[in-house]
Design a protein around this nucleic acid. Structure first.
Length: 402
DNA sequence: CGTCCACAGGAATGACGGGCGG
DNA sequence: CCGCCCGTCATTCCTGTGGACG
């Protein structure tokens, strides 16, 4: 982000907007004080955790659902309520929320845990088992139940394996007074299958599933937030239902829907108008998609970028072989060692996976079986991002202008 | 109806760099 | 601090395959 961007944003925020009342309400990490259409999940999660009021250990819970289905919001919501009650009735308990995407090593997770039970841990120097011992003794002397929330736990396991999970589930056997409950949250449905069976059974004592929202539910959610987020009367008719229906088609992701609404508002604000229209929503969708694509492309390795560059040259759709030939020519021009066609085949699959291109296997009989590859991206955005690689500039000038 | 094209995509293996435990 | 292990990128070799063409 450039200096101008930063200053502009701050200026925007401090100036009174003629669109927004409180745009924070639309941010993804905002926890509203009501969560419509998640009553079932809220009551399930809270009844699972309720035994803590009787001083018993709640079952471990496994929570799964796609992104933007309210998993984190529900859990945080329940925990906030939870604290209210425990403090009101003089019960004591502790919880520790850890997002494993940011704390994605065994040590960092343990450090967070230690912190939440009041143990000071040096940045480095201790073995994990030593940290473990200190946490356990702290828990024992506190004599208080602990609830550990491991959000996006799949990223931890992907990096460090399920060793830590296994040990956490077994902590209770070593404790005399304290109790530990683990709440694992993931958006990867297949994740559980890959776990050590012992972890799987003890972690999955209870399961809560978060289904995607449908269009009607999304519309309801958006309306409730919009009332607080926008000034009265700035939203055109149909703006909210358009956001809802677009997001519903893309897996019922509420975060996406809220994003779209917020960006639509920001676009309207930038234009200096005082109405948010359906057109703003459509531009917002484009903008979000462009940002996403640009972000992905920027971080791609060289050869993937070269494959994309090859695709900007020439016709609409072509086969793997065509792409490989152009790619090799580009490599020759740039003095880069080309990789084999086998590797290109994998790169094409990867690009297809993230949705930048479309690759479909077709059989053309006598003329072989191959993949037809098409760009699935706004060409201007793609070229703009690729130009950031200085050595591509010559190619973009010479080859593309044919 | 069998061939054979132009690849898909699995398996084994190697080079390399970065982080972790001791 | 050093060796070790692990994940990523890449190569080599390979078997598999839908369907137009002869």
């Amino acid at each position: 982000m450039s200096v101008d961007d930063i200053f502009r944003r701050i200026a925007e925020r401090s100036l009174s907007s003629n669109i927004f009342n409180d745009r924070e309400v639309l941010r993804p990490d905002y926890i509203p004080n009501e969560l419509p259409h998640r009553d079932e999940q809220i009551s399930k999660v809270s009844s699972i955790l309720a035994p803590i009021f009787r001083g018993e250990r709640p079952s471990n819970v496994f929570i799964y659902g796609l992104t933007g289905t309210g998993k984190t919001a529900v859990v945080k919501y329940v925990l906030i309520k939870f604290e209210e009650y425990t403090s009101r009735f003089g019960k004591s308990s502790k919880y520790s929320y850890i997002n494993c995407r940011y704390d994605d090593t065994t040590y960092r997770v343990l450090a967070r845990l230690a912190d939440s039970v009041g143990v000071r841990i040096p940045f480095t120097g201790l073995s994990t088992s030593e940290v473990f011992r200190r946490i356990i003794s702290a828990l024992d002397s506190l004599g208080v139940p602990l609830v550990v929330i491991l959000d996006e736990v799949d990223s931890l396991v992907k990096k460090c394996g399920d060793e830590l999970l296994y040990r956490l589930t077994r902590v209770n056997e070593e404790l005399r007074k304290g109790k530990v409950t683990i709440v694992g949250i993931t958006n990867d449905v297949n994740f559980i299958e890959g776990l050590d069976p012992r972890v799987k059974s003890s972690l999955g004592e209870e399961e809560v599933v978060f289904p995607p929202y449908d269009a009607v539910q999304l519309e309801d959610i958006l309306s409730r937030r919009a009332i607080r987020a926008f000034k009265p009367g700035v939203l055109d008719d149909g703006v909210i239902s358009l956001c809802a229906s677009i997001a519903a088609k893309e897996h019922g992701d509420a975060r996406r829907a809220l994003d779209m609404l917020r960006v639509a508002g920001e676009i309207a604000e930038r234009e200096g108008v005082c109405k948010v229209t359906k057109e703003h929503v459509l531009s917002a969708r484009m903008e979000i998609e462009k940002d996403r694509v640009a972000e992905v492309i920027k971080t791609l390795p060289l050869h993937s970028k070269l494959v994309l560059l090859s695709l900007t040259i020439g016709g609409e759709s072509r086969t793997t072989g065509d792409v490989y030939n152009v790619y090799r020519e580009l490599c020759r021009y740039l003095n880069v060692d080309p990789v084999t066609q086998r590797r290109i085949s994998d790169i094409v699959s990867e690009l297809d996976m993230v949705g930048i291109i479309n690759a479909k296997v077709v059989s053309r009989g006598r003329y072989g079986k191959t993949r037809l590859i098409k760009l699935n991206t706004d060409l201007d955005t793609l070229i703009r991002v690729l130009k950031e690689e200085e050595r591509f500039e010559g190619i973009i000038k010479n080859f593309r202008s044919r």
